[in-house]
Every structure is written in C-alpha cells, then in structure tokens.
Design a protein around this nucleic acid. Structure first.
Length: 849
RNA sequence: GGGUGAUUAGCUCAGUUGGCUAGAGCAUCUCGUUUACACCGAGAGGGUCGGGGGUUCGAAUCCCUCAUCACCCACCA
C-alpha cells in the first residue's frame, strides 16, 4: 500500500488501538519465559484526565511495550479509584447544584447514587486512557470498590484485629467540622495566617504569685487542665507542683514540668488543653492530666464549658473569652503574630483537633519490617534519593487512624455492643445496621475505611492473593506514581504488602514529576491554565504527545509542558513516516531477511550503528531513562538512517539492508511512538499480517563490520569537509560550476554532483580531486581578501595560545606522570594537530601576502 | 528549624566513577531544495557551568562557604 505524503495520526490511531485490542495483544502471553507486571495506580474514576495522567500512562506503557517485545508475559493492569473523600466532595457539589444535600438521603441511598455517578464518569476515563495508546489489559480492569478489593481489606483488617494490631483509641484527630470527618495528618493543609498571641495571667491558688501564659487560642482555656514549664527554666523553678486557678472557670490546675516547652517562646509557660492540641495531649498523657473537650463536632462550645459560652462558635467564643479576660483584668497584653493554621484541604475550614473514638493500626511492627526491607535494597527507587526519604518518614511514623466519618467508602466491618461500649466484634455483615450475636445486640460502626487502607493492598488485591495471576505477577516489577503519594500510598503498600504476603509488593518504584504549565507554574483549574490532552492528541497525535512529554524529563522533577517538544515529536513521526515511504518504494516483498547482506561501506556502517544502538536503548529502558533512550532512537533514525544512509544509498541501494533497517527502527521506536510505527508496519507488504506490538525486540546482528563502518565515518568527515570547502570557496568569491550550473553546498547535492559516495571513496584513496566536470572561477575583491587575511591572523593567534597551553601541560612532570596515558596521548595529538594547522595557516598567509 | 534537590547557551535541559575543544532540542541568523520528508537539508553565532574559597597535574563534576529558587517534613502554646 502506498503511504500518503504526510502522516496524519487522526486517521489511524483509533483503528490501530482497536486492532491491538481485538487481537488480544494487551493480554499477557501464556507461554512466555519471563514476566513483567505493572498495576496502574488507579486514577480518580470521576476525573477528567489531565496531562499528568498522560505522562503517567506513558511512563507505564513504554516499559510495558518494551518488555512485551522482549518476550516477557506483560501485564499492565488498569484500574479506577472511588477516591473516597475526593469523589465525595465532587458528588456533594453535584448535589448542591440540584439544591440537595447528603442529609436528604440515607447512607445506603447515597452509596448507590455515588456508585452510579462514578460509573457514568468511568466511561469517559477509559476512552481517554485508550486515546493515550495505553497497552493495558482491560480484561483485568479493577475498581477500588470491587468485591475482591473489599474482601482483601476485610481480610487484612481481621488479621490485624486478631493479632491485636488494631485498636480503638480516643485520640486527637484532625476534624473538619464542615465535612464532619477526621483527616490524616497528611491531609491537613497548613497556611500561614495573621493572628494574635494573647498573654493571660493565671493566679496561683495559694496566692503566692501568678504565672502568665501566652496563647493563640484563648477560647481553649476553658478546657485547660494544666500549665507546663520547662524543668530547667529557673524563672518557674518554685512553681512546679503548685496549682493555678483558671480565670473564668475557676478550675484548679497543676503546674507541671515538661521538656517539650520552648523556654524562649512567649513567657516560657504553656497552658495545657489536652483535648484540643496534639502537644498538650501528649503532655497530658505524660502527667496524667484529664482531658476536657470544650469544642464539639459542630465546631461549637460544648456542655463541658461554663453555661455562658455554650453553643458559641469557636470564633464567637474567642471574642467573648478575650473580652471577659480583659474585664477580669487578667489579660496582660496582646501581640500580633503570624502562624500556621491547619485547614481542610478541600473546603478550607479550620481543622479542629478533637478527641474522638477512632480505629487505629499499631504501625510500629509494620514500619520496622518495611524499614528493614528498604535498607536491604529490596526495592529500587527512581530516583534513588526517594528511598532514604521514605526510610526517614517510616522511622518517625505514628499510629494510623484508618476510620473516616463519610458515607462513601468501604464500611468498617465492626459492631459495637449496644449495652457495652467497650465490646466490639468483627463481623462482615455490614449491610445490616443491627446484628444479634450470642443473644447480644450489636450496632454497626458508621465509619468507613480511610481510602489508603484498601488501596494500600492494591498490588496484590488486584491480582488476588493465591491466584494464578498472583503467582505469576507478584511482586510487581514496577510501581509508578507521583511524589505526593510516596508517604500516604507507597509506604502503606510496602508495609501492608510485607504484612499480608511476606514480600515487598514491587521491585521498583518510579516517581514521576508533575507536568507544570508552560510558564512553569502549577496547572490548576481555577487559574485556567490546565492543558487537556485530548485536543493535543487530535491535533498532533498521541505519539507526538508521548514524545513531547517524556523527552527532557527526569523522574521526580517537575517540568513545564512544552508545545515545542510535542511539535518535535510530531516531526519525528513524520520523518519516520517518510523514511518508510522512501524505503517502501525501494524494496520488494521479499527484501526483508534476518540476514541482511552488507555490500558497501555505508551498508556496514548502518548495520553497525543499529547493532550498536540496540543495547544502548535497551539499557536506558531497563533503567527507565526514557528521555535518553528516545534520544538514541531519534538520532539513529533521523541522523544515521535518513540523513546519511538513505542519502548514500541513493546512488547504490541495498534493499536487504534498507528493509532490515526499517523493520528494526520501527521496532526500536515502537515503545515511544506506538501508533505511527504500527500504522507503518500494517502498510508494509512484507509484514504478512503480523503485529508490530507483539513482534520481537531487535537483537544486535553483528554483521556490520566495525572497520568498514569506521571507513564510512571517514567518508562522512570528508563530505563534511567538502561541504565546508565549497562554502568557504564561495565566501571567498570562488564559484564552483558544473555544466554552467553553480554547485550547491548541500549534503545530497554534493554527493550527487560528485557521482555519489562511491566515487568519493575512490577519490579518498587517490587524493580528493574536485576537477571532474567541475570548473572553478574566482570572483574576489580586495575587501574580501583583506577580511580573509584578518581571519587567518586571528586564527593564528588563537592557535599560538593553544600551543603554549598544550606545551605547558606537556612540560609539567606531574601531569605526564599522573594523568592516564590516553589523556597524555590526546594532548600530544592535539599538539600535533595544532602545529599542523598553524603551519598551513602560515602557508596560506604567505600565499595571500 | 530539619531534609532533599536545583542553579550550565535567549528558553527547556543533558553532562555516568574528576580527563578530548562543555553538548542536545527549540529559538535566532545564513545558505539551499523538481526527484521520501519545509512537519525538509547544510551551516553559523551564542556559555568566565550562581558567587567566593579549597583539594588536584587537571574541577561543570569532589570539599567548604555564601546567595537564590523549588519541594518535602516538623514546629508555631
């Protein structure tokens, strides 16, 4: 079939993807020796995919295609995430548009509605993943709320329950009073805000004095149960053990010594509000102080506080407390300060640390195992520095609060005895609110799991522990993800993986950087600088986008999106297309052979270049250096094949080498440009209904003779020289003519005029003469001659400096002794070359004098 | 406060354990093109490798220091 002059991706991409899918090319081969597996991090099912998703898909798809061609049974498992809270927020917005809220529905209704909402949006996302050209096995598609995922979460929870790793604790949790849920530490967004530091006088109960405390949250003094000072703080040495009398409430609280207090901050005395501050909570635990919760879940002052404050919002309470303190004459002063305040990362509400009954996992044993595995290098990180960061994180890990108070998620399979609050049992009948066990009545816990608890099992839950897939593909080869979820997700997958399967869940972790806007700023919907990948694909093709995104990009480095790179990718595809058009025209159906027969020096050089490039490309790909790998492919195709070999072959073509070169570069380029390479492949007469996607990764042939290849490189140098000479002659006013036409200083033109590279080779052996058919005519004026002389003088001076430098180096004994022989030899060669040049310049000058 | 990374051509970035004249793409400029491709070809210009110090025969590369930027973690009573 004849190819049209320009590659238009839109005409082919959908059909090519359908061709692959229909042929089952994405399904892991049954009879392969090795395996390669990636479970794709599930994107949020309701999301429109952005460029970051595209990059993710490419970073997963490139190694998958490479390994598939290498002959490994390759599994690229796709999935989508219910994304717990994320989805919940989007759905609530949707409800709000309809004038409804979640309070209008029962929990079961809500669950079903959100499920349908997500299912509707899922289609959209699958279309986009296909448009990227992702070679994932759709028959393995997994949703984070699929039965196997829920079962795995329950199984893990139960095992931990049985082993005593799960406990229910009253702990301070980060509570969003708007969403009515608690958050992990990591979900709290700290923002710097202007506030005040209020200094409050707490009189000692025995009347012997007073202690002044400084606070940014005066309203919480209603819940104070102590005052802390540093044990080494001489100012307060006599106070420790005494009690202070709280203004407004009149409560007597002890003054304790604790080294967490910063002597230099404020007054060096800290009020302790254990129910509303993590530090205070920890201190209260150490000193057995009571915890009084004076802020409730609605963000209002609770019944624990004096009557006149009850029901006030935190903000109102702050105002009133300050006024009352002032009226009581105990407010010493107010300072303006700036400090970080925790906010809900979704709605911006100030996060209240509140006491709450939550499910926790004791992370110590899990973290310990994970640290040991990391230190034993059981997982390779790209980039490597992430490993130490992760270890560092795990070493300071606190227990994990796995309960969330939302309707959307996996219900926690635990029931509480209605008569005994401390009696909890494990039971999976979560579809029932009330169950009877041993004549006792239990009420279902209303909480759901933290999303990360179930997704932490993703690598083996998707494969189903114990299944054939699991045996074949676990541990996974690669986990590819963004840096922002290294801690919440990757760390949990490692810990849970080790806990459940006894093995690390993956051998390699690749952290991708973010795709920023073109100006380097963050892409964000509100700024409106988000680039939608689909229009880019429509305009330039999925391959162009792929090349544009992976080139010039390293793992874990944020980099701007660059349209020029995408255009570059498109140009590359077009180049490949035209190379194919040319070669297709020159070769016949039987030209393709496993043993191309080199005849000319150019043949040898081309084959040598190919056989030399294959391991280099493979090596880069094995280590996920996509940009570097593509550069090699690009240069091989553009510079070596198109610019040199094809030009040379025009006068002396070898169809077996041309066909072999095309086939090989198509295979090598396939992971980077799957659509165009497969499209070309399908148009070739000699491919006999095969698919490029499942064809073999090229092996180096060793038929290109190195010495002959080297000779061709000499010719290349010669051609370059001829070009330069022609150009320089022209600049000097010398016109080269052939049959009355001026000769053009161009690669192909020169080769053609000189009768092809073959003749140049001959010329090379007998000394190059440009005389055959060429006439030279001098048209030079005095000014040109003078400028040429100046140029030569300048060059001569430069060379003199260089020679002095080189001579100095060679005269240096330590250099000659210490530097490697090769380096010294290089210097000598340079010296000789410089001297030769110098002489020739001197001769020229003499001639033009 | 702690950590990590960065700083190289106008722009975006390479530069493996110190060793050829510090590279690429884009952009700019020059020249060219009927014969696979203007989504093309041949060239050119452009860098005291963030500043300063040190180690070394030799530093973009190693060490110290300063500066700027980015991100992460912790703290902020």
């Amino acid at each position: 079939m004849k190819l049209s002059t320009a590659y238009s991706p839109g005409e082919y991409e959908k059909d090519i993807y359908a061709l692959w899918e229909k042929a089952g090319a994405f399904i892991p081969a049954k009879d392969a020796k090795g395996t390669y597996s990636i479970v794709m991090p599930p994107p949020n099912a309701n999301a429109n995919l952005h460029l970051g998703h595209a990059l993710t898909a490419f970073v997963e798809d490139i190694p998958a295609r490479y390994h598939r061609m290498k002959g490994d049974a390759t599994l690229l498992l796709p999935g989508a995430d219910h994304a717990g809270f994320e989805t919940w927020v989007v759905y609530e917005k949707q409800l709000a548009k309809e004038g409804k809220s979640r309070f209008d529905f029962s929990r079961e209704d809500l669950y079903e509605q959100v499920w349908n909402f997500v299912a509707r949006n899922r289609q959209n996302f699958e279309t986009q993943v296909r448009a990227f050209g992702t070679s994932c096995d759709w028959t393995h598609f997994t949703f984070t709320l699929d039965d196997k995922i829920i079962k795995r979460a329950y199984q893990t929870f139960k095992n931990m329950w049985d082993e005593g790793l799960i406990y229910r604790g009253e702990r301070l949790v980060n509570y969003c009073t708007f969403h009515g849920t608690s958050f992990a530490d990591i979900e709290v967004e700290h923002r710097e805000e202007a506030s005040n530091l209020w200094y409050i006088r707490y009189p000692l109960t025995d009347g012997s004095g007073e202690v002044i405390v400084a606070t940014t949250r005066p309203e919480t003094m209603l819940g104070d149960t102590g005052v802390a000072v540093h044990p080494d703080d001489e100012r307060y040495a006599g106070y420790i053990g005494k009690t202070a009398k709280l203004p407004l409430t009149g409560r007597e609280v002890p003054i304790v010594a604790d080294s967490f207090v910063d002597i230099s901050y404020g007054t060096g005395a800290v009020k302790l509000t254990p129910a509303h501050d993590q530090n205070d909570y920890d201190a209260a635990e150490r000193h057995s102080l009571p915890k009084i919760q004076i802020i409730n879940r609605e963000g209002a002052i609770s019944a624990e506080a004096p009557a006149e404050y009850r029901g006030l919002t935190v903000r109102e309470a702050r105002k009133k407390v300050v006024e009352d303190l002032e009226a009581a004459g105990v407010l010493v002063k107010t300072e303006e300060i700036s400090h970080g305040v925790g906010h809900c990362y979704k709605c911006g509400t100030v996060i209240e640390p509140l006491l709450g009954e939550q499910w926790f996992i004791n992370m110590q044993p899990l973290a310990k195992t994970a640290i040991a595995a990391l230190k034993a290098d059981e997982i390779t990180f790209y980039p490597a520095s992430k490993k130490d960061q992760l270890i560092n994180y795990l070493e300071g890990l606190r227990d994990w609060n796995i309960s969330r108070q939302i309707a959307w998620g996996i219900p926690i399979p635990a029931f509480q005895n209605v008569d005994d609050a401390d009696d909890w049992i494990y039971d999976e009948r979560v579809d029932q609110e009330i169950i009877e066990v041993d004549g006792k009545t239990y009420h279902r816990d209303t909480d759901v799991f933290d999303t990360w608890f179930s997704s932490g099992s993703w690598p083996y839950a998707t494969l189903e522990v114990g299944s054939e897939d699991f045996k074949r593909f676990y541990p996974l080869n690669l986990m590819e993800t963004g840096g922002e979820i290294l801690y919440p997700w990757v760390s949990r997958m490692i810990m849970l993986g080790l806990y459940v399967t006894g093995k690390v869940p993956f051998k390699e972790v690749y952290i991708h950087g973010y795709v920023m806007a073109e100006d380097g700023s963050k892409m964000s919907k509100s700024v409106g600088n988000v680039v939608d990948p689909l229009p880019v694909i429509e305009e330039h093709g999925a391959d162009a986008l792929r090349i544009g995104l992976i080139t010039n990009r390293a793992p874990a480095v944020n980099r701007g999106y660059d349209t020029a790179k995408v255009i570059g990718g498109r140009n590359f595809c077009n180049k490949l297309w035209n190379v194919a058009r040319y070669i297709e025209d020159k070769v016949g159906e039987d030209s393709l052979t496993d043993k191309p027969a080199p005849k000319t020096l150019a043949d040898h050089w081309m084959l040598y270049k190919i056989q030399h490039s294959i391991p280099v490309i493979s090596d880069h790909l094995e280590q996920y250096r996509f940009s570097e790998a593509f550069d090699v492919v690009h240069d091989l195709i553009w510079d070596d094949l198109a610019d040199w070999y094809i030009e040379a072959s025009k006068s002396d073509s070898n169809s077996s080498v041309l066909a072999y070169a095309l086939k090989t570069v198509l295979a090598l380029a396939h992971p980077f440009a799957p659509f165009v390479t497969e499209t070309i492949w399908q148009t070739l007469d000699w491919q006999h209904d095969s698919l490029l996607i499942t064809s073999a990764w090229p092996k180096p042939l060793k038929v290109g003779d190195k010495a002959k290849a080297k000779q061709f490189e000499n010719i290349q140098a010669l051609v370059t020289e001829v070009r330069a000479i022609t150009k320089s002659l022209k600049a000097r006013g010398v016109v080269l003519e052939h049959d009355g036409e001026s000769v053009i200083a161009d690669n192909s033109a020169i080769i053609r005029r000189l009768g092809g590279l073959k003749d140049i080779v001959e010329a090379n052996t007998s000394g190059l003469t440009l005389t055959s058919g060429l006439t030279a005519r001098l048209q030079i004026d005095d000014a040109t001659l003078a400028s040429y002389r100046d140029e030569l003088h300048a060059k001569e001076a430069d060379l003199a400096v260089k020679i002095t430098q080189l001579q100095g180096r060679l005269n240096n004994d330590s250099y000659v002794k210490n530097a490697p022989a090769t380096v010294v030899q290089q210097t000598k060669d340079q010296m000789a070359e410089a001297e030769a040049q110098s002489e020739s310049i001197a001769a020229d000058l003499a001639r033009f004098a």
